[in-house]
């Protein structure tokens, strides 16, 4: 029995019962191989397309503007500051019950913080502060007014 005939029998609910266990498994393996193969091919082609897209739409990299007053050579370069432990103080006006999500979201926000490499940030503690700061209150009032 050829592979295509085997697949046709597998696909037909009336004939699948007539296939032996070995034939069913062989047909199943062919489907697995075909399915994973085509999935990989499709996504690899997409990967190539996206890589090419990035190349064609790449913006010319900005040259850093030369500083008008270079620092005098005699001046010692500032020693690299040890990364301060960031202890974000979080105020969550909306009550939430999913505690796992809060550290994940805060970490993601800090990771996106543009002036600091992610390796420099260490989250040691996340705690909720009791009183809402004035800017926080102003933000909430602003949000409420814009919605109601």
């Amino acid at each position: 029995m050829g592979i295509s005939e085997l697949l046709a029998q597998l696909a037909d609910p009336a004939t699948i019962k007539t296939l032996s266990f070995a034939d069913r498994m062989l047909a199943g393996l062919v489907v697995t191989f075909l399915g994973m193969g085509i999935t990989f091919i499709a996504l690899v082609i997409l990967q190539i397309v996206i890589t090419l897209l990035a190349r064609f739409t790449a913006q010319p990299s900005r040259q850093p503007a030369p500083t008008s007053q270079p620092a005098p050579a005699s001046q010692p370069a500032p020693a690299p500051q040890p990364a301060p432990a960031v202890r974000p103080v979080v105020d969550t006006p909306v009550a939430t019950t999913d505690d796992d999500e809060i550290p994940a979201v805060i970490s993601a926000v800090l990771a996106m913080y543009p002036t600091r490499a992610t390796g420099d940030i260490v989250i040691r503690n996340i705690r909720k502060i009791d009183s809402t700061p004035a800017w926080g209150k102003a933000g909430i009032v602003d949000q409420m007014n814009s919605r109601f």
Partner: peptide, 27 residues
């Protein structure tokens, strides 16, 4: 994208197991 493709293995291996069980049609 490769990782997104690899995780689809679960679909096809389970398909194979379901076919092997003899309880189900291919569909």
């Amino acid at each position: 994208l490769l990782l997104g493709a690899a995780a689809q293995f679960g679909i096809f291996i389970t398909f194979l197991a379901a076919i092997g069980s003899g309880l189900f049609t291919a569909q």
